[in-house]
Computed example of a mutant assay.
Amino acid sequence: MTVRLEEMSANEFQQYLSFAIKNFADEQIKSGNWEPHEAISNAKKEYEKLLPEGQNTENHNLFTIRYGDKEVGVIWIAERTDAKGFIYDINIWEESQCKGYGKKAMQEIEIFAKENGMNSIGLHVFGHNKVARYLYEKLGYRETNIKMEKTL
Protein backbone atom coordinates (compact mmCIF):
# COMPACT_ATOMS: atom_id res chain seq x y z
CA MET A 1 0.00 0.00 0.00
CA THR A 2 1.45 3.35 -1.04
CA VAL A 3 0.26 6.35 0.90
CA ARG A 4 1.57 9.80 -0.01
CA LEU A 5 1.69 13.00 1.99
CA GLU A 6 1.12 16.06 -0.18
CA GLU A 7 1.33 19.65 1.01
CA MET A 8 -2.22 21.00 1.39
CA SER A 9 -3.45 23.40 -1.23
CA ALA A 10 -5.10 26.64 -0.08
CA ASN A 11 -8.53 25.17 -0.84
CA GLU A 12 -7.74 21.94 1.02
CA PHE A 13 -6.51 23.97 3.99
CA GLN A 14 -9.77 25.95 4.19
CA GLN A 15 -11.81 22.72 4.07
CA TYR A 16 -9.55 21.16 6.69
CA LEU A 17 -9.79 24.19 8.98
CA SER A 18 -13.59 24.10 8.96
CA PHE A 19 -13.55 20.38 9.77
CA ALA A 20 -10.76 20.67 12.35
CA ILE A 21 -12.35 23.44 14.39
CA LYS A 22 -15.62 21.53 14.70
CA ASN A 23 -13.84 18.24 15.39
CA PHE A 24 -11.56 19.76 18.05
CA ALA A 25 -14.55 21.43 19.72
CA ASP A 26 -16.44 18.12 19.75
CA GLU A 27 -13.46 16.27 21.25
CA GLN A 28 -13.08 18.90 23.97
CA ILE A 29 -16.80 18.57 24.82
CA LYS A 30 -16.54 14.74 24.94
CA SER A 31 -13.55 15.04 27.25
CA GLY A 32 -15.45 17.35 29.57
CA ASN A 33 -12.99 20.21 29.03
CA TRP A 34 -15.37 22.70 27.41
CA GLU A 35 -19.07 23.48 27.54
CA PRO A 36 -20.94 23.17 24.23
CA HIS A 37 -21.82 26.87 24.11
CA GLU A 38 -18.13 27.89 24.22
CA ALA A 39 -16.51 25.07 22.26
CA ILE A 40 -16.50 26.46 18.70
CA SER A 41 -15.27 29.87 19.86
CA ASN A 42 -12.51 28.28 21.95
CA ALA A 43 -11.47 26.00 19.10
CA LYS A 44 -11.25 28.94 16.65
CA LYS A 45 -9.04 30.82 19.11
CA GLU A 46 -6.73 27.81 19.49
CA TYR A 47 -6.33 27.43 15.73
CA GLU A 48 -5.72 31.16 15.29
CA LYS A 49 -3.02 30.99 17.97
CA LEU A 50 -1.36 27.87 16.54
CA LEU A 51 -1.62 28.83 12.87
CA PRO A 52 -1.50 32.66 12.75
CA GLU A 53 -0.36 32.52 9.12
CA GLY A 54 -2.68 29.66 8.20
CA GLN A 55 -1.03 26.91 6.21
CA ASN A 56 2.02 29.16 5.76
CA THR A 57 2.82 29.33 9.47
CA GLU A 58 6.52 28.82 9.97
CA ASN A 59 7.62 25.35 11.16
CA HIS A 60 4.14 23.88 10.58
CA ASN A 61 3.53 21.35 7.83
CA LEU A 62 0.01 20.39 6.82
CA PHE A 63 -0.45 17.46 4.48
CA THR A 64 -3.26 15.80 2.62
CA ILE A 65 -2.96 12.02 2.90
CA ARG A 66 -3.53 10.33 -0.45
CA TYR A 67 -3.92 6.75 -1.56
CA GLY A 68 -3.62 6.83 -5.33
CA ASP A 69 -5.72 9.82 -6.43
CA LYS A 70 -8.04 9.55 -3.44
CA GLU A 71 -7.82 11.91 -0.46
CA VAL A 72 -8.07 9.70 2.63
CA GLY A 73 -7.19 12.16 5.40
CA VAL A 74 -4.92 14.87 6.75
CA ILE A 75 -1.90 15.15 9.03
CA TRP A 76 -0.26 18.20 10.61
CA ILE A 77 3.22 18.20 12.13
CA ALA A 78 5.22 21.08 13.54
CA GLU A 79 8.84 21.40 14.51
CA ARG A 80 8.66 22.82 18.01
CA THR A 81 12.04 23.07 19.70
CA ASP A 82 15.35 21.25 19.84
CA ALA A 83 14.56 19.12 16.79
CA LYS A 84 11.35 17.81 18.37
CA GLY A 85 8.31 17.41 16.19
CA PHE A 86 4.72 17.43 17.35
CA ILE A 87 1.75 15.99 15.49
CA TYR A 88 -1.11 18.38 16.12
CA ASP A 89 -3.63 16.43 14.11
CA ILE A 90 -4.15 13.30 12.10
CA ASN A 91 -7.53 12.40 10.71
CA ILE A 92 -8.49 9.62 8.36
CA TRP A 93 -11.85 10.35 6.76
CA GLU A 94 -14.60 8.08 7.99
CA GLU A 95 -15.08 6.18 4.72
CA SER A 96 -11.32 5.42 4.65
CA GLN A 97 -10.87 4.28 8.24
CA CYS A 98 -9.75 0.76 9.23
CA LYS A 99 -7.83 0.24 5.98
CA GLY A 100 -4.30 0.90 7.24
CA TYR A 101 -4.02 4.49 5.98
CA GLY A 102 -3.44 5.95 9.44
CA LYS A 103 -0.56 3.58 10.14
CA LYS A 104 1.02 4.29 6.76
CA ALA A 105 0.59 8.06 7.18
CA MET A 106 2.28 7.90 10.58
CA GLN A 107 5.19 5.98 9.05
CA GLU A 108 5.46 8.57 6.27
CA ILE A 109 5.41 11.48 8.72
CA GLU A 110 8.27 9.84 10.64
CA ILE A 111 10.31 9.76 7.42
CA PHE A 112 9.47 13.42 6.78
CA ALA A 113 10.47 14.32 10.35
CA LYS A 114 13.84 12.57 10.10
CA GLU A 115 14.55 14.18 6.72
CA ASN A 116 13.81 17.58 8.29
CA GLY A 117 16.11 17.19 11.29
CA MET A 118 13.60 16.08 13.90
CA ASN A 119 14.78 13.33 16.22
CA SER A 120 11.54 12.74 18.12
CA ILE A 121 7.83 13.23 17.62
CA GLY A 122 5.20 13.87 20.28
CA LEU A 123 1.45 13.97 20.00
CA HIS A 124 -1.68 14.33 22.11
CA VAL A 125 -4.48 11.80 22.11
CA PHE A 126 -7.76 12.14 23.96
CA GLY A 127 -8.19 9.44 26.58
CA HIS A 128 -11.49 8.28 25.08
CA ASN A 129 -9.89 7.64 21.66
CA LYS A 130 -8.91 4.02 22.22
CA VAL A 131 -8.43 3.25 18.50
CA ALA A 132 -5.84 6.01 18.10
CA ARG A 133 -4.10 5.09 21.36
CA TYR A 134 -3.78 1.49 20.20
CA LEU A 135 -2.33 2.59 16.83
CA TYR A 136 0.23 4.91 18.43
CA GLU A 137 1.32 2.24 20.90
CA LYS A 138 1.74 -0.25 18.04
CA LEU A 139 3.95 2.28 16.27
CA GLY A 140 6.23 2.64 19.31
CA TYR A 141 4.83 5.79 20.94
CA ARG A 142 4.82 5.65 24.72
CA GLU A 143 2.75 7.54 27.24
CA THR A 144 4.61 10.41 28.84
CA ASN A 145 1.74 12.09 30.73
CA ILE A 146 -1.69 11.00 31.82
CA LYS A 147 -4.33 13.40 33.05
CA MET A 148 -7.27 11.91 34.90
CA GLU A 149 -10.50 13.39 36.18
CA LYS A 150 -13.63 12.24 37.98
CA THR A 151 -16.97 13.99 37.69
CA LEU A 152 -18.75 14.27 41.03
Rank of each mutant, 00 (worst) to 15 (best):
R4F: 09
G122W: 07
S9I: 14
Y136M: 14
G100P: 04
S18F: 03
G73T: 11
I65D: 12
S120Q: 05
M106R: 06
K114H: 00
K70M: 10
K44W: 10
Q107T: 11
Q55V: 15
S31A: 15
I90K: 01
K45E: 09
I109Y: 14
I29T: 04
E7H: 09
E7I: 09
K70A: 10
E46W: 07
K99T: 00
Y101E: 09
G100R: 04
D82A: 03
F19Y: 04
K84W: 02
L50V: 02
V74A: 12
I111P: 03
K114P: 01
I29C: 01
F112Y: 07
Y101C: 08
M8D: 11
A20L: 05
K147W: 13
A10I: 06
G85H: 01
E7N: 12
I111D: 09
L50P: 00
Y88A: 05
E115F: 02
A105P: 07
F126K: 15
I92L: 09
L152E: 11
K45Q: 05
I90W: 03
Y134D: 13
I29N: 03
Q14A: 14
I92R: 04
K147H: 15
E7D: 12
A105I: 12
V131A: 15
W76Q: 03
Y136Q: 12
I21Y: 07
E58C: 07
K130G: 14
F63V: 08
A43H: 08
R133K: 15
T57H: 09
E143K: 11
Q15F: 09
R133C: 13
Q97V: 01
R133G: 15
A39D: 08
N61A: 06
Y16I: 05
M118K: 02
D69N: 02
G102Y: 03
M1T: 10
E71K: 14
Y101G: 08
E12C: 01
N129I: 09
N61Q: 07
S96Y: 11
T151L: 15
R66W: 12
I87V: 08
Y47D: 10
P36E: 13
L5Q: 11
M8Y: 10
Y141E: 11
N145K: 08
H128V: 13
T144E: 12
C98P: 03
